[in-house]
């Protein structure tokens, strides 16, 4: 909350009426929220609440059934993510992501992972590799720059010593940090992290907090975060969106969300014993309010 005194954080990502259906299953149901520039926004919710589905829609792995996803790119103006082809979202719009189950290039070295992340920049510099094939100096310079950026991020996540290791031979926590470094090497404007603290011990988790805050403050980008680990969520996020059964049930600053009865109910269940199965109760509630 302390960041961005220089200019008021503006909406970086605006999600409007996002709905994703898989056949008859509504995984995400009419969700709207905004994620601000230079701020950490967290999406939380019980298992199966649709958090990762929201991410997959944002990063082009799913085409949303309904909804508009607008990214206010700082230099290139507004972009409609739902209309872009999957790989163009990181390429053009600058949305980078990590995965719940880590997806590194296992057989390649740590450094190579970070160089592959700079593919598009290097492709331009090497004229689709043809210039590089002929040994043009322009490509060599670009590659040096790429290595410099990689070295910066390796230093930042504490993997500089292990740069030449095979990625799959890293310990779990290192793999998580490497994936974040790799996403950052694409020079994103919005970083989407899918459960970055999963499987980390408390010390590593605290280190992650420092890293994310530094990414936000030093690199002035927005971070969107899915997380179960409340120590991460409550300490570093400025804005929290709570999902349950594909719907947004609460939104606000951490303190407000923590005391929201709907959130407590979603996480801990109702105080009195429920006679109705949750799906039925949900349907009834839906009918009662006439749909949200």
């Amino acid at each position: 909350m302390t960041s961005g005194q220089t200019r008021q954080p503006a909406a970086l990502l605006t999600v409007e009426h996002l709905t994703m259906r898989f056949g008859g299953l509504v995984a995400v149901d009419d969700i709207s929220f905004t994620a601000d520039d230079r701020r950490i926004t967290a999406i939380i919710g019980p298992n199966g609440a649709g958090k990762t589905t929201v991410f997959n829609c944002l990063t082009g792995f799913y085409k949303p059934t309904v909804g508009r996803l607008t990214l206010q790119h700082p230099s290139q103006g507004p972009m409609l993510l739902e209309q872009m082809e999957g790989f163009r979202i990181p390429q053009r719009a600058g949305v980078a992501r990590t995965f719940q189950n880590i997806r590194l290039f296992g057989a390649m070295s740590v450094l190579e992972n970070l160089i592959v992340a700079q593919h598009n920049r290097l492709m331009r510099a090497s004229w689709l590799s043809i210039g590089g094939l002929l040994g043009f100096s322009r490509y060599r310079r670009a590659e040096r720059e790429a290595v410099d950026l990689a070295r910066y991020w390796l230093d930042k996540v504490g993997l500089l010593e292990r740069a030449d290791w095979q990625a799959s031979s890293l310990p779990y926590g290192d793999q998580r940090r490497l994936e974040i470094a790799r996403a950052m090497c694409t020079r994103p404007v919005l970083l989407c992290l899918d459960e970055p603290a999963a499987g980390l011990n408390p010390r590593e988790s605290a280190g992650l907090n420092t890293l994310l805050l530094s990414i936000r403050d030093d690199h002035q980008i927005g971070i969107l975060l899915i997380e179960h680990d409340m120590s991460v969520v409550m300490q570093i996020s400025e804005h929290i969106v709570v999902l349950d059964y594909g719907r947004k049930i609460a939104e606000g600053v951490p303190a407000a969300v923590r005391s929201d009865p709907a959130v407590i109910k979603a996480y801990l269940g109702e105080e009195e014993g429920e006679e109705l199965p949750p799906e039925v109760a949900q349907d009834l509630a839906h009918d009662g309010t006439g749909g949200r």
Binding site: G60, P90, Q91, R97, F99, R103, L104, A117, H119, R182
Partner: peptide, 9 residues
């Protein structure tokens, strides 16, 4: 999938 998430076509 990781390649796609890094903007590689």
């Amino acid at each position: 999938i990781a390649c796609r998430s890094l903007g590689i076509n």
